[in-house]
Lab assay of single mutants.
Amino acid sequence: MDTYKLILNGKTLKGETTTEAVDAATAEKVFKHYANEHGVHGHWTYDPETKTFTSTE
């Protein structure tokens, strides 16, 4: 398992979190669920070199 990072740049919520996942697709599902639960619906990007997802509203 690898550690993946999420950076949230929402209108009402900003911050970072991490998750352990078997691959990027699994981490993306976890992070999108997390963002949706916190009302963040933004544009998603992923940097495979740093294993970092960013959601920007």
Rank of each mutant, 00 (worst) to 15 (best):
G39Q: 06
N9M: 12
H41Q: 12
M1C: 13
T56V: 09
T17M: 15
K51A: 03
D47R: 03
I7G: 01
V30H: 13
L13G: 08
G42L: 15
F53K: 00
S55V: 15
W44F: 11
T3F: 07
H41E: 12
A21C: 07
A35N: 02
T19P: 00
T45I: 07
K51C: 02
E49H: 11
K29C: 10
T17P: 01
K11N: 11
Y4E: 03
V40R: 02
T26K: 05
L6W: 04
A25Q: 11
E49A: 13
D2W: 10
Y46Q: 00
A24V: 11
Y46R: 00
K11A: 12
W44C: 03
F53M: 00
A27Y: 00
K32L: 11
F53W: 04
K29F: 08
G42E: 03
E49K: 10
K29I: 12
W44Y: 03
D47M: 05
K32H: 09
E20P: 05
E57D: 07
A27L: 01
T50N: 08
Y4D: 04
K14I: 11
V22H: 11
G39I: 04
K29T: 09
E16Y: 14
G15N: 10
A21P: 01
E49T: 11
K51I: 01
E37F: 10
Y4V: 03
A25K: 11
G10Y: 12
A27H: 00
N9F: 11
Y34D: 01
F53H: 01
H33K: 15
E57P: 05
G10R: 02
E57W: 05
A35I: 07
V40S: 04
H38T: 06
D47K: 04
T54S: 08
E20V: 14
N9H: 10
F53D: 00
P48M: 07
Y4S: 04
T18P: 01
Y4L: 03
D2E: 14
A24Y: 13
T12H: 13
T45S: 12
E28I: 07
K29A: 12
E49I: 11
V40H: 09
E28P: 00
K51H: 07
K5R: 13
G10P: 03
S55E: 05
L6T: 02
T17F: 15
T50W: 05
Y46E: 00
T56R: 05
D23Y: 01
H33L: 14
G39W: 06
